[in-house]
Design a protein around this nucleic acid. Structure first.
Ligand SMILES: [Mn+2]
Ligand SMILES: [Mn+2]
Length: 649
DNA sequence: GCATGTA
DNA sequence: TACATGCAACGCCTC
DNA sequence: GAGGCG
């Protein structure tokens, strides 16, 4: 067969390169669509850019239609070099920070400093290429062409925006965990259509919009001061719905200005048709609904208030009457108009209570980790799936609990006793075992773990002794606590060095991630020694290492004493003290899990929170062997020789 | 989240 | 029955 | 002795 000499074989006549193509835009979606063929991409935090390339010269057009070729000339030059006759590319220009995460602030700085050198263009679509209008071609095919094209360039400044087909819920969760703004979903079979449609949707980690200020709070009885703003949005009928309060996080000066402005708008009665009930800790002052603020927030509650709002600033440019709840679309029901607001909302809770392992789980869908959007049910499921592995390490061991009734970013509290209510499967130890205290708790049944999660228990901390003998510890722990910004390599080295020392003196040890920042090295013991002897020994080990390598280790409590170092926290070995239990979740962003690992896995691990309540159970179920094989069979004690080796006696 | 007290 | 309220650690170290 | 720490 005869071949044409020009590139892009097969086509007949070239179509003209359009002068302009307006960008396709995404609609904010409430949740990932349940059906359809979707591709997901990272939502970049940068500037949208359409590139028109003709005869080796690129023109860069912003979403507003402005020509930014000059402003981003180094980028334009890179795009000039693409091996195309002509093309329209669609993408986003960003500045990548060191971690590879795009940073909008860095982008703005790059413009301010006039150094546009580190700009990167992430191309995600190609509506026109080499004389062919691709706008009617399905997205998946357009992206295939785009991918091939970008693979041919060696420029680091031009990248292909990868797409993912995995479960969008977990993709969104990881995007949020990486502090990205969210993800974009696109119908794989859709044509390129300028303007906004639901063929493209955005799923955001945080929502953000304007609110009318309909009042503010001050401390009960106070004569002045402004604590929180009472937010409102207009319903379609023009009435004002109370939408929650947000702390007025302003510097003293602007705050005073705002209070002055508010003073002129004071009125006696609430502007809301659904004012919140009065509270005893704070007074409400009502305002004429004229001021407008912007706030970000996690989500709308079923009652029509915002969850976890964060004040973002005043908005001077928007009329209060134009402020409504921003439309969010449910892609699964494309025909449905935006939901009716306010009074028709479903009441929270009542959607049939879930039962896991025989325990009722209420508010299963409540988000408990703002950052990753993990829910109470995720925690419950985790403990359900990890129970068989965790229970042997909890058996007979007193535990303390960390509870997070408002989610892990809210106020937490520690709990050692529970006398009022009966949590299923929890044992209360006889008070004689720990005189002058209320009964200690032991978790030794599967349903106890579920019952605890239902009570918003996130973390379990366990003793180093088992009932009925709480006077003789059956293990000690070296809790390696790093300075917050210490390199991971230092952490791994510290663990290895600890093991080498323990091996040297003849003690077998086991290691787990803390689920937070560090490691816990656990040394099982036969129950021969008293608390003080074991604690003194572990202190001696810590001190010994700190003396030997003072640049790496500290044996002294307190952040000041471990700058650029690792604190070997031997204090976990006092009677009554506890350490986060094996397989406990952590009440921190991302909900890491304290994961036992084999020593030879140590170098494969990247961070102490690398397993989370989403990934820990799959690991354990798929693992062939117990990472702590032999732990319960280890029989060893602290000998005189060992004590001497670390400088005791 | 739950148990208990009050209207 | 509906709603409000209180409640949920503690010992040891460092300075 | 008070306050911080985990
Ligand atoms: Mn620690
Ligand atoms: Mn510690």
């Amino acid at each position: 067969m005869k071949r044409r000499s020009s590139s892009g074989g097969g086509r007949t006549a070239d179509e003209p390169l359009p002068e302009t193509i307006a960008p396709q835009l995404a609609t904010l979606a409430r949740r990932p669509p349940a059906s359809g063929d979707w591709l997901y991409e990272i939502k970049f935090d940068g500037y949208r850019l359409m590139c028109r390339v003709e005869q080796g010269t690129a023109k860069l057009i912003t979403r507003g239609g402005h020509d930014w070729t000059e402003k981003m000339c180094t980028l334009a030059t890179a795009i000039d070099g693409l091996p195309v006759e002509n093309a329209w590319l669609d993408g986003e220009v960003v500045v990548l920070t060191e971690s590879g995460v795009p940073d909008f602030n860095a982008l703005q700085n790059a413009f301010d400093r006039r150094s546009t050198a580190q700009l990167t263009f992430f191309a995600f679509d190609i509506p026109f290429l080499n004389g062919r209008d691709l706008r009617e071609v399905p997205l998946s095919q357009r992206r295939e062409l785009l991918g091939e094209l970008i693979a041919q360039t060696s420029s680091e400044r031009i990248r292909f925006s990868e797409s993912f087909t995995e479960d969008p819920q977990s993709l969104l969760a990881s995007a949020c965990r990486m502090r990205l703004e969210g993800i974009i979903g696109k119908r794989a079979d859709a044509p390129y259509r300028s303007g906004r449609s639901t063929d493209w949707i955005k799923l955001k980690c945080l929502q953000r919009q304007e609110f009318v200020v309909g009042g503010y709070t001050r401390l009960a009885g106070a004569k002045r001061g402004m604590r929180s703003l009472m937010l409102g949005v207009h319903e379609r009928d023009g009435s004002l719905r109370f939408a929650g309060t947000v702390k007025a996080e302003l510097k003293p000066r602007p705050l005073a200005d705002l209070e002055k402005k508010a003073a002129k708008l004071l009125r006696d009665n609430p502007p809301f048709y659904n004012p919140p009930p009065r509270e005893k800790d704070r007074d409400f002052l009502w305002l004429q609904p004229e001021l407008v603020v912007e706030a970000s927030f996690l989500e709308w509650t079923p009652a029509g208030e915002v969850r976890h709002p964060v004040f973002q600033g005043m908005r001077e440019d928007k009329p209060a009457t134009a402020v409504t709840e921003e439309t969010v679309v449910d892609v699964d029901e494309p025909e449905s108009l935006p939901q009716a607001k306010g009074t028709t909302r479903v009441s929270p809770g009542r959607a049939g209570t879930l039962v896991i392992a025989g325990v009722k789980v209420s508010n299963a869908e409540r988000v408990i980790d703002d950052v990753t959007r993990m829910k109470k049910i995720d925690l419950v499921r985790y403990y359900d799936e990890i129970a068989e592995f965790a229970l042997p390490y909890l058996k007979d061991r007193p535990v303390s609990l960390v509870r997070a009734p408002e989610g892990i970013h809210g106020e937490l509290f520690f709990q050692k006793h529970e006398e009022r209510s009966n949590i299923p499967g929890i044992t209360r130890l006889p008070v004689e075992l720990h005189p002058r205290h209320p009964p200690l708790l032991v978790v030794d049944r599967h349903e106890a773990l579920i019952g605890l999660a239902q009570m918003n228990v996130v973390e379990l901390h366990s003793w180093n002794a088992v009932q009925p003998d709480l006077e003789h510890p059956d293990r000690f722990i070296l809790d390696l606590d790093p300075d917050p910004d210490l390199s991971w390599q230092m952490m791994v080295d510290a663990a290895t060095l600890s093991k080498v020392l323990l091996d040297e003196i003849g003690l077998k040890s086991f290691i787990k991630t803390s689920g937070g920042k560090g490691f816990h090295i656990v040394v099982p013991l036969t129950r021969r020694q008293q608390w003080d002897e074991v604690k003194d020994f572990s202190h001696a080990v810590a001190r010994y290492m700190a003396r030997l390598m003072p640049e790496r280790f500290s044996a002294v409590l307190g952040p000041k004493n471990r700058v650029k170092k690792i604190f070997i926290d031997y204090l976990r070995n006092s009677k009554g003290a506890s350490t986060v239990a094996v397989f406990s979740a952590r009440a921190r962003s991302g909900m890491g899990v304290s994961m036992p690992i084999a020593w030879d896995e140590l170098t494969d691990i990247g961070r102490a929170d690398q397993w989370t309540i989403k990934t820990a159970a799959p690991r354990m179920h798929s693992l062939g062997a117990d990472p702590w094989d032999g732990f319960h069979r280890t029989r060893q004690g602290i000998t005189v020789a060992m004590r001497r080796a670390v400088g005791l006696r």
